[in-house]
């Protein structure tokens, strides 16, 4: 009697649960269906290549072994990186290159331009920003050739002949003398325009009432930047800093074109490129290059996490709690 009662109960309970389970299965599947195209794209073009690079980094694959005679070497490549005499100087170069370009230009100069051009009449601000976009619109090779012409060895070059010469400064081989100056300038002039566009649109989208309120509350223009505009730019600052850090870590084409890594300007990504895909001796060390690339990815991920912590990402995306008055 009691047994059958409990059976009925169990059945009813099962019945009661059944439609719910079905619904939850469906509610789980349908978003997956909608996301499928994006997921497939990410897997094919992002996930699989990463896995392949990581796999190659565990082999000794190179031009010498070809695609047939390579073998697994476990962490040999990473061990080589750890003990390689170039590792420390290149790492130092990379950090200096990224930090200086980022601070002085990609974020610093970008912010300054955005703030200045949003505090002058609209039209002049727009014109100035449009001019600053020109380097980005110029093909890299042409752009770097122009810089090389500016900084050409003595007695040639615009610097020697037209700018510093007339001031009585003796002609110099500028590129070997100040390689970092030119590496940072060439990258910075292009890099700043990205942040400039983002920051400008962020500043212009600050509601006009906030800007008026700040002035009426007693801010000078400078205090308004300090207390209102900069705090409201936290998201775009986080975004530009993170994005440009990663982009600078992996970008090397300006340096390649300008110095080819000479005069102590070799950076990590250029090193990886030269080892894996383009070197003087024609022996492309795919395995070692892949390991170098993997280390770069690791550095990038760590940096991104640090930024997120520093800008208190969680606080930025907090849920509001509203109750009616």
């Amino acid at each position: 009697m009691s047994e059958s009662a409990s059976t009925v109960q169990a059945l009813e309970a099962g019945k009661a649960h059944y439609p719910e389970e079905k619904a939850s299965l469906r509610s789980l599947l349908s978003p997956l269906l909608f996301m499928a195209p994006a997921i497939i794209l990410v897997v094919v073009f992002f996930f699989i290549p990463v896995v392949i690079v990581l796999a190659i980094s565990l082999t000794d694959m190179s031009t010498a072994t070809g695609f047939n005679n390579w073998k697994w070497v476990q962490f040999d490549n990473y061990r080589r990186i750890a003990t390689h005499p170039n590792t420390l100087p290149v790492l130092r170069n990379t950090l200096m290159y990224v930090a200086l370009t980022l601070a002085l230009f990609n974020v610093g100069m970008a912010l300054v331009i955005a703030l200045l051009t949003t505090h002058v009449p609209r039209r002049s601000g727009f014109l100035f920003r449009a001019l600053w976009l020109l380097p980005r619109l110029t093909p890299s090779v042409v752009y770097i050739m122009m810089w090389k012409y500016v900084a050409a060895d003595a007695p040639y070059g615009i610097l020697n002949q037209h700018l510093l010469g007339p001031l009585g400064i003796p002609p110099t081989n500028w590129l070997p003398a100040q390689p970092w100056l030119f590496v940072i300038l060439t990258n910075g002039f292009i890099g700043a325009s990205f942040g400039m566009v983002i920051f400008t649109s962020a500043i212009e989208s600050i509601p006009y009432d906030y800007m008026v309120a700040a002035l009426v509350d007693g801010c000078s223009l400078w205090q308004r930047i300090r207390y209102l505009i900069l705090p409201l730019l936290r998201w775009p600052l986080l975004f530009v800093t993170t994005y440009q850090t990663l982009s600078l870590l992996t970008s090397f084409e300006q340096i390649l074109l300008l110095t080819e890594g000479q005069f102590g300007t070799e950076v990590w990504s250029l090193w990886a490129y030269q080892r894996a895909l383009s070197n003087y001796w024609g022996n492309f060390q795919w395995g070692f290059g892949a390991a170098l690339a993997a280390v770069l990815v690791l550095i990038g991920v760590v940096m991104a996490l640090v930024y997120m912590r520093y800008f208190q990402f969680n606080q930025l995306v907090q849920e509001p709690k509203i109750e009616a008055l």
Binding site: P207, D209, A213, V216, L232, R234
Partner: peptide, 11 residues
Amino acid sequence: MVFQSYALYPH
């Protein structure tokens, strides 16, 4: 000054 949009500093 008091605004229609309140204009409280969100941060």
